[in-house]
Design a protein around this nucleic acid. Structure first.
Lengths: 136, 136
DNA sequence: ATAGACCTTCCAATCATGGGAAGGTCAAGA
DNA sequence: TCTTGACCTTCCCATGATTGGAAGGTCTAT
């Protein structure tokens, strides 16, 4: 299986497969005589693992740790759970931040007429002026 | 007011002030004889505007547009509202994605013993195996 | 043999930000 | 006046994950 097929089979682009190899996340596969990379089924399995971890928002570094734990038959599941739980906390912090932004923006958009007059509470807020505050 | 004071007054780092100037987001201020940047109050005001927009998650490019609209006395508030509303939609999409990740991870973490045994549903999921599915 | 769909490496760009080097400037104190 | 330390300047580099592209080699089917 060459890199294009491995890419299709795993959902990881060929570019990224080479990149992951270059940073040591995955091992360099064997090559053909003409220097093409050849992937075995288990190597594609690793790529799918990586893809899923990245999709779940783990960084490449976290993914490397998880991959190591996956391949270590004697690891404790507690270690994996710690990483997952820490990741959940980070995601929830991020979500809260975004929700706070949305809340502010919705309030501003609600107050903004969106018509052709130049009065605009959104810009007033960005500018740090609050002359139209009507307290709702 | 030199760049350090402008930085303190606006919350934008000196590094970023110079960067914003280099990409044309803000105008180059006057200089002293010794080539120091000097900021006036209205320029600090612009910096605060930029800071607030960035804090609200607008990209630098969106910020540039908003800044242009802010400084254009004849602009229509509809245009500003469109940007804000589009931005809200993008943020909500991002939030939904993150929430989906959290949901999956919480389920996996819940199923994971977190003990010293190597059995780990989290890794099984990443690996694409679902042998322990008990349907809850 | 040739077309075109692969593959290879290498280099660059993205976005926003921070780090740091090498050197110039200013204000306060000895 | 000289020194010290805190500022300022420009310049280049690094981050993280990914994409784009150039220049060139290889494979397959016609």
């Amino acid at each position: 299986m060459n890199i294009g097929e491995a890419s299709n089979a795993s959902g990881v682009s060929a570019k990224m497969i080479r990149y992951y190899e270059s940073i040591g996340l995955i091992r360099a596969p064997l090559r053909t005589d003409s220097n093409y990379r050849v992937y075995r089924e288990d190597e594609v399995h690793v790529l799918r693992f990586v893809k899923r971890a990245r999709t779940l928002g783990f960084s490449v570094e976290e993914t490397a740790t998880l991959l190591g734990l996956w391949q270590d038959k004697s690891r404790a599941s507690a270690e994996v759970k710690d990483i997952a739980v820490g990741h959940i906390a980070a995601l929830e912090t991020k979500i809260a931040e975004l929700q706070s932004m949305v809340k502010t923006l919705k309030h501003l958009a609600h107050c903004c007429g969106g018509d052709n007059r130049p009065d605009c509470p959104i810009l007033d807020d960005l500018a740090g002026e609050h002359p139209h505050s009507k307290g709702h």
